[in-house]
Design a protein around this nucleic acid. Sequence first.
DNA 1: ACAGTCGTTGGCAGCGCTGCCAATCGGCTT
DNA 2: AAGCCGATTGGCAGCGCTGCCAACGACTGT
Lengths: 348, 348
Amino acid sequence: MDDGERVRPGPDDEALTGEVLRRPVTLADVAREAQVGESTVSRVLRSHGSFSQKTRSQVEAAVARLGYVPNRIAGTLASTGSRLIGIVIPSLSNIVFPDLLRGATGVLEADGYQSVIGVTDYDQDREEALVVSLLSWRPAGLLVTGLEHTPGTVRSLRASGVRVVELLDVDEPGLDIVVGYSNRAAGAAAARHLAGRGYRRIGYLGHDLSRDLRAIKRLDGFRGALAEAGLALDGEERVPAPSSVEAGRHGLERLLARVPDLDAVYFSNDDMALGGYFHCLARGLSIPGRLALFGHNGLDVGRLMPQPLATIRTPRVEAGATAARLVRAGGRREVVDLGFALIEGATA
Amino acid sequence: MDDGERVRPGPDDEALTGEVLRRPVTLADVAREAQVGESTVSRVLRSHGSFSQKTRSQVEAAVARLGYVPNRIAGTLASTGSRLIGIVIPSLSNIVFPDLLRGATGVLEADGYQSVIGVTDYDQDREEALVVSLLSWRPAGLLVTGLEHTPGTVRSLRASGVRVVELLDVDEPGLDIVVGYSNRAAGAAAARHLAGRGYRRIGYLGHDLSRDLRAIKRLDGFRGALAEAGLALDGEERVPAPSSVEAGRHGLERLLARVPDLDAVYFSNDDMALGGYFHCLARGLSIPGRLALFGHNGLDVGRLMPQPLATIRTPRVEAGATAARLVRAGGRREVVDLGFALIEGATA
DNA sequence: ACAGTCGTTGGCAGCGCTGCCAATCGGCTT
DNA sequence: AAGCCGATTGGCAGCGCTGCCAACGACTGT
């Protein structure tokens, strides 16, 4: 094959070069190999525009022969908008957020998008830095958890002009699209359930809430509904650590030590509740006779305990999937409340 | 400020334009605003090369005034190597993989890298497609789970020249860097533990192993060590579904129905074992008197059960972190066996 | 006073691809 | 037979940034 002068060594004219030294294959190489123009190769690879069937096969053959992998960095720069979606979550330790990711990546990967993730560790300043960092990749959209952000984060988000979906909370106004459920309402539903069942000495066991705004809202809703039922929290314990089974187990022990005559406990989430359940099992406390337990999230594990956990199932995977769908659509600002479901279980 | 002819509208010369219509701020805008050259701005922003303190402040002021966010797409194209690391995992439902991600993102984010993730759903063909897709972003490195890949995946990986780390398994030769532990050895250790404790009627409860090669290796190691102790598996049940607490609970029920006189069960992982534990609790089977349980992974939840789960703690977060460190280093091919720890617990 | 140095700085050619536009080619209409 | 139209194709100017190189003082040593 003669293609005249060549500016720099190409992959096809130096059989002696080791693989590693060889320069990457570019679209121009494919064009030369397939005897067509660069734009034609580009069109074929993206199935965009028109070209003959013959051209298509030539290009595909050349691509296979050279092992060409398109460079999306270049493609993105040249066109407008990338196929990247940034996802910002507070943690990976709590299964809630992997669930969110799962919902989102499922939809995104099916459409040829890639997810770039960032983990804030519940730190709003870290979130701000991550948002800027993600925006520097010029993503097609951004999913962030929660509605509370620093002014800097809001400014960057606004200025970037990218579509933003805020997740898992609909209790405050959002920036653009909001997908989730009402944590206040969930807390209230839990309280009404417990009050309705006749529990009167109700306690609360939470984790470190200083950064978990949604857990605070649940507690807030819980307290409010309790008050409407003429009740109040009779005991409250907060473990100064992230939510975990361990915090739930040891926290309940401490809570009961301080307030022994509680007849029900509302936990900040299911992990905590599972820990509490284990504590009761270990101590031989009968459930719900001696003590009723109520969680939040509706994890699978709760459903499979010998006595299914009374809890609230939250739409985590659905929220991720819905967000992934909306973040690419051209629609306008909106709030999608996916609701939640109270699971009666057998522990309350 | 007079800067002569301008090719297209800039963000600073059309006060009447709405935010949305305004073209994004570029490095050239910052240079103009700061009265310096583009390369100078670039140097300042990357703290690379030399420049005066005065210049630095001018540039920083201009950046702040314009709200400039660097375009890493362009930066990556112009330079060599991106600040992206691709991470391919089989699932997000099993906490093992979020743990891996956690270890990796912790290290990567601290160094200004971003993680692009892909979920294969335990499908090797999907993995192949994802690898190509991730490579098209020209990542600085790639983390993939496991050592088994399609020929196509291997070819793409090799051809790309990017650093690859294979995770969570060291039982076969790898492509480049390998970080994990021996699943065979873990299975064997479990078997020796059970045999050593005097259990003789041993069963196995697994999930759908057709795609989970590491679980197969554990079972393989388990069987081997059992044989060395003069024992064999007396019962085996495989739930045709991904591992879950539910599969563990119902699977154990079926296993015991078929082989009632087992005195110990080895589970494919802790989720399954937890389900088994719940089944025993529900049925009032005493543990480990009537039946001993042994898991795999060493999840927190197992440690907090009324009777701590006998299991093997695997280095998941450490593997992610180690991989993240090595994938950027210039080192040579190597295998890093992080080992595992047998946790005696109280269920076996 | 002159050449050599070092710290700074700006200019500009790409990086690999896409979008736009013009050119080409058959086949058809009038 | 001339003119027209749609399908197909190639050329090339950027996209925003980095890397290289030359240029420019301000000093220094001789």
